[in-house]
């Protein structure tokens, strides 16, 4: 769905933030991980056409990003900002979520339907008339997710979706991701919460100092202990536990680990 070739970018000359990135992003849900400052957010902004590449090309569904306006790209690719305060600007929850669809030219009735469906997904459907700024940080985050979901784009990127979320909030976001996958959308995320990556994303790409240093099936990626270390990235907690206990298998979820242990006992 996305092809990136030879992509480089710098905010200041001589100080490259991304260096020669080549990626083919397909339908698999994909997590981008790496240290703060590794170039993850810059990469995503390039995908969305918010920044123009220094060098190289980005194609999204066969359209060349640099020849498209941000408005045109907004119909294909949606981005949920890391800081909800950068995204929210309406004074009612419902208006906030309807803004995107209406701006894309969707008629009012359809936009309302999209918005209600998205708000229901994140559990804010009973707060339609509230001022978004009166919501808690975790609710604001969910509102921002709903706003992008309502635009019904084929590609959705979540920048740090689990910030400020408690157990329930994470479960809600898991459900949203699952629903989007079932609708054949490409869900991507930039995230530091490795447990969440292991549970929800099929593919993981590791950025380090502007380069892709690891890319593949999430289980494969979290098994590469040494490379992860060099990128200052940690494996999920359960993966670390399995490794410390000396198991060859790379565990991604608690359930996997418990099943394995129970089977081991029955042998």
């Amino acid at each position: 769905m996305i092809t990136v070739s030879n992509l480089s970018y710098a905010y200041q000359k001589g100080n490259p933030v991304l260096i020669d990135i080549h990626l083919n992003i397909d339908q698999r849900s994909t997590a981008i991980i790496g240290q703060n400052g590794a170039g993850k957010t810059t990469f995503v902004k390039l995908l969305k056409g918010l920044l123009k590449p220094f060098e190289g090309e980005v194609f999204i569904q066969n359209q060349q990003v640099k020849n498209r306006t941000a408005a045109e790209l907004a119909k294909i690719i949606g981005l949920v900002f890391q800081n909800p305060n950068d995204q929210i600007f309406k004074n009612k929850v419902l208006d906030e979520v309807m803004f995107g669809p209406l701006n894309m030219g969707i008629d009012k009735q359809q936009a309302t339907e999209n918005a209600m469906e998205a708000l229901e997904m994140v559990g804010l459907h009973d707060k339609l008339d509230m001022n978004p700024h009166d919501l808690s940080l975790s609710e604001k985050k969910l509102l921002c997710i709903a706003s992008v979901v309502a635009m019904d784009t084929n590609i959705i990127i979540l920048d740090e979706p689990t910030i400020a979320q408690d157990y329930q909030g994470k479960e809600t976001i898991k459900k949203v991701i699952k629903t989007l996958k079932e609708k054949n959308k490409l869900v991507m995320t930039i995230i530091h919460d490795m447990d969440f990556v292991a549970e929800n994303f099929e593919r993981t790409i590791v950025f380090n100092e502007g380069k892709v240093i690891l890319d593949g099936d999430t289980r494969f990626v979290f098994a590469q202990k040494d490379i992860l270390k060099s990128a200052h990235v940690e494996a999920p907690e359960i993966t670390k536990l399995g490794e410390k206990l000396g198991y060859r298998k790379t565990f991604l979820t608690i359930e996997e680990f418990i099943d394995y242990k129970n089977q081991e006992r029955n042998l």
Binding site: D195, P236, I254, F257, I258, K261
Partner: peptide, 15 residues
Amino acid sequence: HGVNAPVYTRVCKAL
């Protein structure tokens, strides 16, 4: 109470 124990605790509880 809407919270989860650490991963390590959850595993050991289950086992």
